[in-house]
Amino acid sequence: MTRFFGYFGLLIIFVLLVKPILPENRGTQHQREAFTAYTKGCENGNAQLCDLVGVYYFGNKVVDVDLDKAITYFKKSCLGGYPAGCQRLGSIYRRGDIINQNYKMAVTYYKKACDGDLAIGCAYLGYLFKNGLGVDQNNEMANKLYHKACDQRPNQGCINLNEHGW
């Protein structure tokens, strides 16, 4: 009887603790299939799908968090011309909580995002110019960037314009 409860206890531990972390139990079947399709699409040159794969690696129930892979996929996305990937990289370099803070790299990636007409990229780039982070402080350039962001998506650049009385 003791042996039965010992095996039964091991079975319960397996079902409750081990089985939920096995790969086949990570996310729904649909989410796992989507991740696989996104990865394939990225390998075939779809920059937007590279960005999505990066988001999965950044934090998701489908795959383990792997920040190096996330950054690699965001770089593929940005180099492929998808502005959201550039914006994500700009934020990663600006914050410096994942990799070493590097405002010059943040400027580079935010500029690519802004050139791709992504309002938040313009707003963050304006912030860097306003505060002289990675670039010479330049209120005129900050103003232009905030206006561009405001024209594209009012609540992102316009808030900055109002805060600075522009």
Rank of each mutant, 00 (worst) to 15 (best):
residue 1 M to W: 01
residue 1 M to P: 04
residue 1 M to E: 08
residue 8 F to S: 15
residue 9 G to S: 14
residue 12 I to Y: 02
residue 14 F to C: 05
residue 14 F to W: 10
residue 15 V to E: 01
residue 15 V to W: 05
residue 20 P to T: 08
residue 21 I to A: 09
residue 22 L to C: 01
residue 23 P to V: 05
residue 23 P to W: 07
residue 25 N to S: 02
residue 26 R to V: 04
residue 35 F to W: 10
residue 37 A to N: 12
residue 39 T to M: 02
residue 39 T to C: 00
residue 41 G to F: 04
residue 46 N to M: 13
residue 50 C to Q: 08
residue 51 D to Y: 14
residue 51 D to P: 02
residue 54 G to H: 03
residue 59 G to Y: 04
residue 61 K to R: 11
residue 63 V to L: 02
residue 66 D to S: 09
residue 67 L to E: 03
residue 70 A to L: 03
residue 71 I to P: 12
residue 71 I to Q: 08
residue 77 S to I: 03
residue 78 C to K: 08
residue 80 G to W: 06
residue 84 A to F: 02
residue 84 A to I: 13
residue 85 G to A: 07
residue 86 C to F: 07
residue 90 G to L: 14
residue 90 G to P: 13
residue 92 I to K: 12
residue 93 Y to I: 12
residue 94 R to F: 15
residue 96 G to P: 08
residue 97 D to F: 12
residue 97 D to K: 08
residue 101 Q to A: 14
residue 101 Q to H: 10
residue 102 N to V: 09
residue 104 K to C: 07
residue 106 A to G: 06
residue 108 T to K: 12
residue 108 T to H: 13
residue 118 L to K: 10
residue 120 I to Q: 15
residue 121 G to E: 12
residue 121 G to K: 13
residue 122 C to K: 09
residue 122 C to I: 02
residue 122 C to A: 10
residue 122 C to Q: 09
residue 124 Y to R: 14
residue 128 L to Q: 09
residue 129 F to M: 08
residue 131 N to K: 11
residue 131 N to M: 01
residue 131 N to R: 04
residue 133 L to M: 13
residue 133 L to V: 08
residue 135 V to D: 08
residue 136 D to T: 02
residue 137 Q to M: 11
residue 137 Q to C: 00
residue 139 N to I: 11
residue 141 M to G: 07
residue 142 A to F: 12
residue 144 K to E: 12
residue 147 H to N: 15
residue 148 K to C: 12
residue 150 C to F: 05
residue 150 C to I: 13
residue 152 Q to W: 07
residue 153 R to V: 04
residue 154 P to G: 15
residue 154 P to A: 12
residue 158 C to K: 03
residue 161 L to N: 06
residue 162 N to G: 06
residue 163 E to S: 05
residue 164 H to M: 10
residue 166 W to M: 13
